[in-house]
Design a protein around this nucleic acid. Structure first.
Lengths: 110, 110
DNA sequence: TTAGCCAGTCACCAAAAGGTAAGTAGTATC
DNA sequence: GATACTACTTACCTTTTGGTGACTGGCTAA
């Protein structure tokens, strides 16, 4: 979770701060179905660098959108999963996908 | 409208390209209730520079989200208004405002 | 004729975001 | 002992985005 000091006054700005960059929505989409490890996430999101994936995961963990669990199997693994808060973004993602798909149709038919 | 070449394959990336920056959602929110001129918009969005407002308006016009009408009154004015496509973003904006407000409550009560 | 409002543009700079490639460290397998 | 897989970090660089302040140019009103 952000602290009270980091919280922007505008609700929309709050959203943008939490998941309004190039990659975070993609990370969330990957984690919807099942938790994933770092390398699996890295492979499943074409174009993202390890550095940016790492920093985005940290921010999303700090914001409470995902959870990070170290699993002491052999080999030791780290599992990233959507938190309840992360899952509550589903309606927004669905509406973005819907609107974006409609717009793509509009462009392709023009 | 974007051209077919500029269109990203992913619907969510399409959304981000069209209104996923710091200011465009604010511009849309200002134009929901009534059309506005350039200076009125500039005054109503604290912190935005004329340069960035100008370039954002151009991009949103090109994308079909807003319309730009020059009104030959005296003094001559320019009116920016939401297009039908722009209005179709309302459900997304509403869900962003709702989620952001909930998150703010969560932070403030923690 | 000076001032002010409208709607911007331009040149320059700063900050944020992202990309690249290499390195670290632990464990396990060949 | 070499290789590979886990999960990252670090230094450096480029690109993108945004901000500043001055300036243009048409029009109007005192």
């Amino acid at each position: 979770m952000l602290t009270k000091e980091e919280l922007p006054p505008c609700p929309v700005a709050t959203c943008f701060q939490l998941f309004g960059n190039k990659w975070k929505i993609y990370i969330i989409q990957q984690l919807i179905d099942h938790p994933m490890g770092f390398n699996a996430l890295h492979r499943s999101i074409p174009g993202i660098s390890q550095k940016v994936l790492s920093s985005n995961l940290k921010e999303m963990d700090a914001a409470g959108l995902i959870t990070r669990t170290v699993i002491p199997e052999t080999p030791i693994r780290t599992e990233y999963a959507l938190s309840e808060l992360g899952h509550s973004l589903m309606p927004i993602i669905d509406s973005l996908v819907e609107w974006g798909t409609d717009y793509q149709q509009l462009v392709r038919n023009s």
